[in-house]
Computed example of a mutant assay.
Amino acid sequence: MKQKISLDDVLSNAPDLILYAAPIMIGLALLEFYFSWKQKKELYEKKDFLASLSIGLVSVFQNLLIKSILFGSVIWFYNIVPWSIPVTWWTTILCFVALDFFRYWAHRFGHETSLFWATHVTHHNSEKYNLSTSFRLSWTQQIKVVFFLPISLMGFHPVVFFICHQIAVLYQFWIHTEYIRKLPKWISYIFVTPSHHRVHHGKNAHYLDKNYGSTFIIWDRMFGTFQPEDEQAIYGILDQPKHYNPVKLVFHVWGDIFRKMGKTKNPIKAVKLLFQPPDALYKDKKVE
């Protein structure tokens, strides 16, 4: 008979890898900042860097405060199914691949629907691309946990799930850089590289909504969203904020959504707006 998992079981056996890695990542970002300044590459802007750092630090401490809620939801779904997948090295790899598949779709919906774009836009609203960009994680992104609950329903152990999830998040750090250019073909055919992810952050017309992969680029190749890097990316978003206020950078699209919903007299249309492409928010808005 399947053994039920408690919150204490997970909290005591799933180390907080991101918390431990945070000082190392900040140190590497500062090192990149220094070399960028020394070499006059202008990859960093001081106010933008401080905004990214502020957003990232709040995100880390926020996750510490609410992780019991997130863990609890994953555990609950794991406990309601009568089956489980044994914990071995190969099922851990299988869990990571399955998680990456769902991360692809979570990321894709994060660009293709207004609701999830509001939870993701913070990561894109910088006109610079550097290691500190990986710190820009929205304080509302936890909503996307709904995309990962199928991992629990499949029977993967919650501890394995959370370790795989943290490794996937940490993988994102190194791909946010201009210093690493094209990698060998066999690597770039399977894995997401800095070259792939620069495309994803670009607002060049043919770069928009491409390369959603988290660790593996194979999903983009399979589902028609792959785009190789063929020109320098222009970073930022189409409706680019002209400030460095961390709170506004996190919540500006939420404000746009609520203003648009408030102007919509039909409540059904107002709710539908949440699941329409982000362009629907700005049809009547003049971009300054």
Rank of each mutant, 00 (worst) to 15 (best):
L50E: 05
L53E: 01
L53Q: 03
L53I: 02
V58C: 01
F61E: 03
Q62D: 00
L64G: 07
I66E: 00
K67W: 02
S68N: 14
I69P: 07
L70A: 13
G72K: 05
S73T: 11
S73Y: 14
I75F: 14
W76A: 15
F77I: 10
N79Y: 15
I80W: 15
I80C: 10
I80H: 12
P82R: 12
W83I: 04
S84T: 06
W89Y: 13
I93A: 14
A98H: 09
D100N: 12
D100F: 10
F101D: 08
Y104I: 05
Y104V: 05
A106L: 05
G110P: 09
G110D: 05
H111P: 11
T113M: 14
F116S: 09
W117R: 04
A118M: 12
T119M: 13
T119D: 08
H120A: 06
H120F: 10
H120T: 07
H120W: 13
H124I: 09
S126P: 09
E127K: 14
N130Y: 09
N130L: 10
L131G: 04
L131Q: 07
T133G: 11
T133N: 13
T133M: 13
S134F: 06
L137A: 01
S138P: 04
W139E: 01
T140I: 01
Q141H: 10
I143P: 02
I151P: 06
L153G: 10
M154Q: 04
M154I: 15
M154S: 04
G155T: 01
F156M: 05
V160P: 03
F161I: 14
Q166H: 04
V169C: 11
L170N: 11
L170K: 07
